[in-house]
């Protein structure tokens, strides 16, 4: 099994927990396991997946990025504003991604040059960015994009293929799923197959040791935040294409889920490294839980409780498994 998934996932307990959750939902609600619903879960998870992949780079480098919410929104806002002013969709999207990269640049500048802690820097950026959104949208009104081009709409709403009729058996494979998969594959390649990835993990494990052994610490911190900013802006653009509008402050909605997904993913790895397969499993976990709780008709108020309890259980299983394995030679959690 480890050959199948790769060296990143060395702890299976979380996977089994995920399977158990799936089985429970399948029993409670027969519609859950239909192909139509599974493809629903995937398309509902695509945007969160892209955000979480972006965040994975920063967390792998030993930092944290709360401003992913802002990169997400700035990406969406820039794209929508540019297209509103008559720009073609492709340059608008590219400039919007650039705007996200700029957010990452601002963060890393303060972190690398001024040596502020990433938590504070990105928290400050979050405050500033959300305020800019409100200023641009007269206090937070959505910006609608009625005349959006077909190509732009295809980004978030288009289907690659549709199988089956209009009933529950309909499988709708959205284009956005493909984008998420492509981004994830590229990120996985970068993190696991390149010198950049290896050194980024070294930086995350032991910054001083990494610097002494020749890792260009500053440059890589920059790269991690630029990647995070750009990728999250892409997620925001896809999100705005799904809604054909820009809704201010919608990035906040993804912030904590993305952090949760990346950390669930890192708990799957023996060294505790944030990694792409793990992140995707974390994202799927959130998608499956939200979808399954909805289908099983549980009171909306209980859904948040259930989500927290399930994360707690996964963490518990993971730590119990780790303790069992590590009992003879206890390693310290750095």
């Amino acid at each position: 099994m480890s050959k199948l998934i790769g060296p990143d996932l060395t702890r299976y307990s979380t996977l089994f927990a995920l399977l158990a959750v799936i089985v429970i939902f399948a029993i409670v609600s027969p519609a859950f396991l239909s192909m139509g619903n599974l493809s629903n879960i995937l398309s509902q998870s695509a945007v969160l997946a892209i955000v979480a992949v972006g965040l994975t780079f920063v967390i792998a480098s030993g930092g944290i990025d709360l401003s992913i919410a802002v990169s997400f929104d700035i990406g969406a806002m820039t794209a929508v504003l540019l297209m509103k002013s008559g720009m073609n969709w492709l340059p608008a999207v590219l400039i919007a991604i650039g705007a996200g990269v700029l957010v990452g640049f601002f963060n890393s500048l303060l972190i690398v040059k001024v040596k502020m802690t990433p938590f504070l820097v990105t928290l400050g950026t979050l405050f500033i960015g959300e305020s800019i959104e409100k200023i641009m949208t007269r206090g937070g009104e959505p910006l609608y994009l009625p005349g959006a081009g077909e190509w732009f709409q295809f980004l978030g709403r288009g289907s690659l293929f549709v199988v089956g009729g209009d009933d529950g058996g309909r499988i709708d494979f959205k284009f956005s799923i493909l984008v998420a998969i492509a981004v994830a594959l590229a990120a996985h390649f970068l993190l696991s197959r390149t010198v950049f990835g290896r050194q980024l993990y070294a930086l995350g494990d032991q910054k001083e040791a990494a610097a002494l052994s020749g890792v260009p610490v500053h440059k890589y911190t920059f790269y991690a935040f630029l990647l995070s900013g750009g990728i999250c802006a892409l997620a925001g653009i896809i999100g705005s294409s799904v809604l054909t509008s820009f809704v201010p402050l919608s990035g906040r909605y993804y912030l904590l889920d993305a952090i949760g997904a990346v950390f669930i993913g890192s708990s799957l790895n023996r060294q505790g490294h944030a990694n792409i397969p793990g992140t995707l499993i974390g994202v799927l976990f959130f998608g499956i839980v939200a979808n399954g709780l909805n289908l099983s008709g549980i009171n909306f108020y209980w859904q948040s409780v259930a989500r927290g309890v399930l994360i707690f259980l996964i963490l518990y299983l993971d730590s119990a498994a780790a303790r069992r394995r590590l009992r003879p030679a206890k390693t310290k959690a750095a």
Binding site: L256, I264, S267, S304, V305, R307, V309, S319
Partner: peptide, 15 residues
């Protein structure tokens, strides 16, 4: 249980 505080308290926040 050795949870990362960030994640353990995040799940508590949802609850």
């Amino acid at each position: 249980l050795g949870f990362i505080p960030l994640l353990g308290t995040l799940s508590m926040m949802y609850i």
